[in-house]
């Protein structure tokens, strides 16, 4: 079932290796004006118990970020109810 954001939360969806670790999506609370980089820090904290810290920070540095369906830079503003998709490493062919 798709998650629904509570007031003050963003939905973070995962593709690639992080989906195996964190599941398809998590909710991340945000306060007031935030940026994607703030959310990434929170994601790092949430997932740290689940995988190697250095590997996780490299993955987050490499992942592609899609905010509400559009690529966005780390410094883009993000507000409650937004959907941030983290496309983390995966390889095909």
């Amino acid at each position: 079932m798709e998650a629904v954001a509570e007031k003050g939360e963003v939905i973070v969806k995962f593709m690639g290796v992080l989906r195996d670790t964190a599941g398809p999506e998590i909710m991340v609370p945000i306060k007031g004006k935030s940026r994607i980089s703030d959310v990434l820090q929170d994601v790092q904290k949430k997932l740290e118990p689940l995988m190697d810290k250095n590997l996780l920070s490299k993955i987050l540095k490499y992942s592609r970020l899609v905010l509400n369906g559009v690529y966005a830079p780390d410094e883009a503003e993000i507000k409650p109810g937004d959907v941030l998709m983290i496309i983390s490493p995966a390889a095909g062919g």
Partner: peptide, 17 residues
């Protein structure tokens, strides 16, 4: 698709942003 496969680096997080 394999000469070369750039997609992973461009869109799937196999290279930095």
């Amino acid at each position: 698709h394999l000469r070369p496969w750039t997609f992973g680096a461009e869109c799937l997080g196999l290279a930095p942003r």
